[in-house]
Amino acid sequence: MPSYRMNTFELLESEAVYVIREVAAQFERPVMLFSGGKDSILMSYLARKAFYPGKIPFPLMHIDTGHNFPETIEYRDWWMEQIGAQLIVRSVQDSIDSGRVAEEEGPNPSRNALQTITLLDAIKEFKFDAAMGGARRDEEKARAKERFFSFRDRFGQWDPKNQRPELWYLFNGHKRPGEHFRVFPISNWTELDVWQYIERQEIPMPSLYFSHQREIVRRDGVILARTPFISLTEGERWETSRVRFRTIGDATCTGATESVAVEMADIVNEVAATRVTERGGRADDRRSEAAMEDRKKQGYF
């Protein structure tokens, strides 16, 4: 007699696949955002599963801040071939060049906030009506109340008071012209779930996630990697250390952690034992207690 039981990973996987298929079915022009980080790698991997043996019926889009680690772009192009997906790239540099946005001033100009404009422009350009993102509810307090189908008004803004209740497995994606949705298929995964699943499924990951020698600078308790986009301020110096990244995003604000994790199993063990949240390493979240909520209201993912 079969037990008909599913473990946590199978349940989370089934749920995410259901949500991704719902997006493909309910929307005319969906897109899946791809940052090159583990969450978007996982999400695109699940999209591949959702439509197998068919192809992923929507494009993936990378909002390129221009502040990338070269490894990210290399991996991105290789991964798209692996999963047979179509990739669109829109860059923040273009938005700056066309005068849509202005670069931040100061020693560590972050383009994290700027990518919101580029994203909204791209959504308009391609008339996307649903954009899937790899955000998870356990990442940050403001995300804990986020829906799977997150409604955005004509200005791309998120109004916490105007979100639709989600009951059972019913996701309401009906909308008026100009309105769109952000959809988060892996909402219910925790960081540890993501890594454990990646380990079990043996999904190849970018080298940045594994321990390596790198030149870094320590700034406000955050370890930042040496890139052309960061210059030292007074009293700071470059040093070499064994580090890895827990999240991968804009190189100017993605913090590294000191680590000797070289195998996937090491990473899982490290994540299981760690006492700091992954966003604890992100400089942009530290700016104020409600930083994430403010950015979300503007249309940030």
Binding site: R137, P160, D193
Partner: peptide
């Protein structure tokens, strides 16, 4: 567990918030 700023200010929870934890036996939502 009181997520949004408005809630923190008023000291009340006004929406469904999802939390996660797990033990060796189960994941909990």
């Amino acid at each position: 567990t009181d997520g949004l700023r408005a809630e923190r200010e008023q000291g009340i929870t006004i929406d469904v918030a999802y939390r996660y934890f797990s033990t060796a036996r189960r994941k909990f939502i």
